[in-house]
Design a protein around this nucleic acid. Structure first.
Lengths: 141, 141
DNA sequence: TCAACGTATGAACAGTTGAGCAGATATTGA
DNA sequence: TCAATATCTGCTCAACTGTTCATACGTTGA
């Protein structure tokens, strides 16, 4: 809570960049997870960033399911479902159990399960509160 | 194009698609959030699905910050930072407070804050547990 | 053995996304 | 007034993503 005393362009540690609040920056930087963790985490979020994949995973919240049933509940073609599941498998978010020609997938990541639970719970809430869910005008993109 | 709204358990076998476990499918479908919620949620996850954006948001976990400081801690150019913040602003994940020519951003979504907290906590854990963080080769496995 | 079936895969294609660049806007101090 | 500053924006392009199509694989029952 500094009283905007000064914005000094050149009081940093040799860095060419200008910093307004060096203390804050240093503190935040020291708490920032290593790059690899950021990438990892972003990766996981990326897997949840598609409505179809999300519905696949939500379906699996309640137990294992075969590919064709997952295709039905997710609204994807069976091929697309298989592709999506392969992605999730590659990231160890789901695992397979094969029986004959059937493949049963299940959620295999407690972390992701928590994220999903939290997301669902919150969407239900937000649903009532949210006045408008549309993107504001925001020119372009 | 979504028949997800009308979830009728008995209606399924009339469909051309083959279903292995109609009961499961019906149960899951009845619990599946409406399409709009799925899209919304996937959207939010999408915002967290980029390591740079993630570091911006993590920085904001501890309070508001101006664009140039955010650029420093996130490792983005100032232009890229501004672009990213605009995106986040458009989705009401962050909000701005302007003072003169400075713009101070802050986290403005409790939901996202929870997701971030959870993610960070878990990454710290996983860090110790995770044997290998690399993506497994897609071809194998 | 063969055909039907459930699933997996690779290639190709359209749509989306993020970042840089250049220029624009708005605020400040001289 | 002008120049410097802090941030924002439109444009553009390369990289990425998700889907479809065609095809391949392994299993099952006839």
């Amino acid at each position: 809570m500094q009283s905007s005393s000064s914005v000094q362009p050149t009081d940093i540690d040799g860095c060419a960049t200008k910093v307004v609040d060096p203390e804050r920056v240093a503190a935040v930087q020291s708490r920032m997870p290593p790059e690899a963790d950021l990438v990892d985490t972003a990766d996981i979020f990326g897997l949840l960033a598609d409505p179809r994949r999300l519905s696949l995973l939500l379906a699996l919240l309640e137990g294992e399911m075969c590919v064709c049933d997952l295709a039905v509940v997710s609204g994807l073609s069976e091929s697309a479902t298989s592709h999506a599941l392969r992605l999730l498998r590659a990231h160890r978010v789901v695992s397979v159990r094969r029986t004959g020609r059937m493949a049963y997938y299940r959620l295999d990541d407690a972390h992701v399960r928590m994220l999903l639970d939290l997301a669902v719970a919150h969407t239900e809430h937000t649903d009532a509160i949210h006045p408008e869910r549309d993107e504001p005008p925001l020119t372009g993109r």
